[in-house]
């Protein structure tokens, strides 16, 4: 029950906060963006606010965290009190500090992974659509085959082969995600490449790179952004599921996905500890997708506002 009350309270506080934040942005930002900011729905303002707070926490983690990321400062599972605001974890490390450092590691890894997946996936996808023919067929069939392998099991295979450093983790998850991005990018780009203005640009003698950059990408951006929002959040879940299967991030580094896994058993006894990292992921997911929804809405050209 306590959790529910906490949720209600949090939502009640976030509405005026978002409102103030939107008003502040409308004041501070340069003219064009200020108009956009003024017109955006409260949910989007809330999303941007949350993302800003996360970025702030991630950037200044060492200054904000009361204790170090890995130092054992107490006994296991101390309750919440004034020295350890959110108690301690299994090894007696400060939970709040781990959460704060977790923001840095988790968001950093998720962003790197998703960005890599999108650069590779969308460039290849658009390129395949643009070139067509054998290249398109070959790439697409190969990607189809990779997608037909369950992603978690495929990641498991790759990580077992290549080891589980942070770098391989990023590369492997990005590779798996890139196949999904490729498909979307290719199908969107296929719609665009048949347009007259692409033909015109080709006749002008523009190169592939120019076409991708200047003509196709801007027109394919909306669905890609929507996908980005979800993929970004799924990275946490993948890491969490991988740590369920015994892989995942190198300890003693803190990341939310593994923190959920490490403390998950406690929920069996109604202990809220694992809800903290899970809640941190959920909040970010909701925030990112609120902003994405807003952008999609703007892109769809639908004028009415709710």
């Amino acid at each position: 029950m306590g959790v529910l009350w906490f949720l209600v309270l949090a939502i009640a506080c976030s509405i005026p906060l978002s409102y103030v934040f939107r008003a502040a942005m409308a004041q501070v930002l340069p003219h064009d963006m200020a108009i956009a900011a003024r017109d955006m729905p409260l949910t989007a303002a809330f999303g941007i606010l949350v993302i800003a707070v996360y970025i702030f926490i991630a950037t200044f983690a060492p200054l904000l965290a009361p204790y170090a990321e890995r130092t054992v400062v107490g006994t296991s599972f101390q309750p919440w009190d004034s020295t350890h605001l959110l108690g301690t974890d299994r090894l007696g490390r400060d939970m709040l500090s781990r959460l704060i450092y977790g923001a840095r590691n988790t968001v950093g890894i998720a962003f790197a992974t998703t960005a890599l997946a999108f650069v590779v996936g969308s460039l290849l996808g658009i390129w395949a659509a643009l070139r067509g023919g054998w290249l398109d067929q070959g790439l697409s069939r190969f990607v189809d085959a990779l997608m037909a392998i369950p992603s978690l099991i495929f990641s498991l295979l790759l990580l077992t082969i290549f080891g589980t450093s942070v770098l391989t983790l990023i590369l492997v998850i990005a590779a798996v995600d890139a196949t999904r991005v490729y498909r979307i990018a290719r199908s969107v780009a296929q719609g665009v490449v048949v347009m007259d203005y692409i033909e015109a640009a080709r006749l002008r003698g523009e190169g592939n790179w120019y076409l991708i950059r200047r003509e196709i990408l801007p027109n394919a951006l909306a669905p890609l952004v929507a996908e980005f929002g979800l993929r970004f959040c799924f990275v946490f879940l993948t890491i969490s599921s991988l740590s369920f299967l015994g892989l995942g991030i190198q300890p003693p580094m803190a990341d939310w996905g593994s923190m959920v896994r490490d403390n998950a058993t406690l929920i069996t006894f109604g202990d809220v500890t694992p809800l903290l990292p899970a809640g941190a992921i959920a909040l970010l997911t909701v925030a990112v997708n609120f902003v994405v929804d807003w952008q999609l809405y703007r892109a769809s050209g639908l004028k009415e506002q709710g």
Binding site: T43, C233, F236, L237, S240, S241, F244, G257, V260, R261, A264, T265, I267, T268, G270, P274, A278, I281, A282, L284, T285, V286, N289, F290, D293
Partner: peptide, 24 residues
């Protein structure tokens, strides 16, 4: 908004964790 936020929260919990909560 509520349906959206609820659905998003549900997918942002790892599967095993959703399962644990339901079992609880």
């Amino acid at each position: 908004r509520v349906a959206n936020a609820g659905a998003l929260s549900a997918i942002s919990f790892p599967e095993f964790f959703v399962a644990y909560i339901l079992i609880f």
